[in-house]
């Protein structure tokens, strides 16, 4: 969620801050860095160092010597499959989250709906995107679980038995549907400003040139929105990949995804090798890190047209 307009602002504000009037010419200039020492210390001790410990540990043996054994140790069937399930769930939930979120935002911004629904929907998106974790899992158990509201309704009123159809809330699709509850709102929050940025003139120009609505979307609007959509997709992916609490509360340990496995490993070294845990955590950072880099790069691209 980096704000790439910031450099512009800071560029405007730099002159007064560095100008002769703002800084007393006393020897204080050399000691300016002292002001951010507390912050630097905190961040180093409780954010950077712990992460570095994990990253370095992934490449160390128990005696501290350098090795690739731990990374190689990840390539066992059980760990690989947990990564694969995690990636699939993250892909599915970010794909549908991005798609549905986009459709809802488009309906809200371009669908000719009353403007009054906008503020409540955005507020609700803010709440829902923060309503993850254990309570969210309970909400979905109460709805799509074996005795859930929707499950029972479908069974008694419509004669549809979700269980017979192979649906289980403690499964791949169950988890994906649950994750959508925080994925869709996040998409709405990010893509709405981008949709607002589509200029009316572009639509009019396309109409004047005889473009159909489909052509306008295919050749004008979507190419402009594409970096935003893809970037948000990457962000949603990282968001789902790092989600721990929802998964644990929903499935216990019945679904072997990376965060659950890592959680068990931290609690009780289930893999039988502490440094394999480091390697697993390192793999998580690598994947969420790459997804975020993709988001930032695409976000910078999208700023070119919008705004």
């Amino acid at each position: 969620m980096s704000d790439t307009t910031d450099p512009v602002h800071s560029a405007h504000q730099t002159p007064p801050a560095t100008g002769p009037s703002a800084v007393p010419v006393r020897a204080r200039l050399n000691l300016n860095w002292l002001g951010i020492v507390p912050f630097a210390l905190f961040v180093t001790l409780f954010l950077i160092a712990p992460t570095m410990k994990i990253v370095l540990g992934a490449f160390q043996r128990a005696d501290g010597s350098f090795t690739f054994e731990n990374i190689a140790g990840l390539f066992t069937p059980s760990i690989l499959s947990s990564y694969w399930i995690s990636i699939k769930i993250s892909l599915a939930s970010s794909f549908f989250g991005a798609l549905i979120g986009f459709l809802m935002a488009a309906a809200m911004v371009l669908g000719g709906l009353p403007r009054a629904i906008r503020a409540p929907l955005m507020t609700f998106s803010g709440v829902a995107s923060n309503f993850a974790g254990v309570p969210l899992a309970f909400a979905f158990l109460a709805t799509l679980g074996p005795l859930g509201l929707v499950t029972v309704f479908l069974k008694t009123e419509l004669g549809i038995n979700l269980r017979m159809l192979g649906f289980n809330i403690l499964s791949f699709w169950g988890l994906t549907i649950t994750y959508l509850f925080f994925q869709i709102p996040l998409m709405i929050l990010i893509v709405t400003p981008a949709l607002d940025g589509l200029k009316r003139e572009w639509r009019e120009a396309a109409d004047c040139l005889g473009a159909s609505a489909t052509q306008y979307w295919r050749m004008v609007a979507l190419p402009i929105l594409f970096p935003t959509i893809l970037g948000t997709f990457a962000l949603l992916f990282a968001n789902a990949f790092g989600a721990v609490a929802t998964a644990i509360a929903l499935t216990g340990s019945s679904l072997n995804i990376v965060p659950i496995m890592l959680f068990a490993q931290i609690r009780g070294d289930v893999l039988g090798n502490p440094h394999l845990g480091y390697a697993m955590a390192f793999g998580m950072i690598l994947i969420t890190g790459l997804a975020n880099v993709l988001y930032i790069v695409l976000r910078m691209r999208s700023e070119r047209w919008l705004k």
């Binding site: 712990p50 959680f263 931290i266 955590a281 950072i285 969420t288 975020n292």
Partner: peptide
């Protein structure tokens, strides 16, 4: 820009990894 980048890191590094680091460190 650097401070801002650092403050955004917790969105990139999953909480489970940070706390794993705490426990080991």
């Amino acid at each position: 820009p650097y401070v801002e980048f650092v403050t955004l890191l917790p969105l990139v590094i999953p909480a489970i990894v940070t706390v794993f680091g705490y426990i080991r460190l």
